[in-house]
Amino acid sequence: MMHRADQVLDRLLDALEAELAAAPEDEIRQAAADVRRKVSYAAWDVRGVIRRAEAATPPAVPAAPVPLPRVSPSRWH
């Protein structure tokens, strides 16, 4: 059975992503050491991307309570 390259790639990426999501922390440290990257410097780059996205999204302002309509005393009951 033939599979389309994009479908194969999607499945492959899902499988590899699951591996990365489950990678133990010591493996991440080792990988950083392998490529001579300081974890804190590399993390700073990613933090920068997140900060820019946060800055582009203004914090949501909680909605002010809606005042209840005034009802004249004659309509209380």
Binding site: D6, L9, I28, A42, D45, V46, R47, I50
Partner: peptide, 19 residues
Amino acid sequence: LSELDLLRLQAIARLRCRG
């Protein structure tokens, strides 16, 4: 997010850019 989780996120983002 911890520094290590940020690196994990970067690796996932780079992977998802494939293709």
